[in-house]
Amino acid sequence: MKVFNNAVGLKFVFAIVLCFIGSETMAQYGYGGRGGYGYGRQRSAVPQAQTAQKPPEPKTAEQIVDDEMPSITEALSLNEFESAILSSVLKKYVQERIEAQILKLPPEKMREVYENITKRQDEELRAGLPSEKYEAFVALQKDGVSKTLKKKKKEKKKKRKKDKT
């Protein structure tokens, strides 16, 4: 009788294990599912409309200046006070330039407006920054940030070589 009970018990355990394996396979590989037909993820017969991607939002004056300030501060070796002055002045005049672009003026008028903005910005920076920092900023605008940083690194290397000898 024991042999018969062991065989029945083994069959019962084997059937339960098969059920668990079968359900795992169906869940993992997508067999069965709704209605019990098809393999994997089903596609709809109705085509889906393609939505046009939105053009990226234009940056605000504050975002533009905040993105550039770390490299400008490094290139000009500004302290926190000088950096704050430069940042506030740049934000103000970048905002004015953005507003001028929105107006879409004729080229001659736009040039005039930009020159006026630049002139007022230079006057305000000259008054707020020390003269050597102002001159460095003007050179930075002329050469660009990356070029100024490269020059600064070269000067440091030359200075190190002189100190070693």
Rank of each mutant, 00 (worst) to 15 (best):
V113Y: 07
S87A: 09
P107N: 12
T165Y: 07
E24M: 03
E24R: 00
N6A: 08
L10K: 15
A84S: 00
A27H: 15
G22I: 00
E82R: 04
K152S: 09
Y37H: 15
K151E: 10
E112H: 03
G32A: 12
E68N: 13
G32H: 10
Y39V: 12
Y134N: 11
K92I: 11
Q53T: 13
T51A: 14
I85S: 12
S87T: 06
D122I: 05
K109A: 14
V145L: 03
E99D: 01
I98M: 15
K161M: 00
Q95E: 06
K157F: 06
K119S: 10
C19Q: 04
Q42P: 15
E135Q: 11
V94K: 04
N116W: 03
V13N: 01
G144S: 02
E74I: 09
A127P: 07
V13L: 09
S88D: 09
E68Q: 13
A15G: 07
N116T: 01
K150L: 08
K153W: 07
V46K: 09
F137R: 01
G40M: 11
R97F: 10
V65S: 01
A139D: 13
V65T: 01
G32Y: 05
E96Q: 15
S71C: 07
K157D: 01
K161V: 00
E123C: 01
L10P: 15
V3W: 10
R120W: 08
S44Q: 04
E112F: 09
R97P: 01
T60S: 03
E96A: 13
C19S: 08
K154N: 03
K11S: 15
A84M: 05
Y134G: 08
K150N: 02
I21E: 12
K157S: 03
Y93N: 01
Y93K: 07
M69I: 04
R160T: 02
K59V: 05
Q63I: 02
E135L: 08
E68P: 11
A15I: 09
F81E: 15
Q50D: 14
I102L: 05
M110E: 10
L129R: 04
V113E: 02
V65Y: 05
R43M: 12
L129A: 11
I64Y: 00
G35W: 12
V89E: 03
A49P: 15
P70L: 08
K159F: 00
A15K: 03
G33I: 13
A52W: 09
P47T: 10
P70K: 05
A52M: 13
K151R: 11
K119I: 06
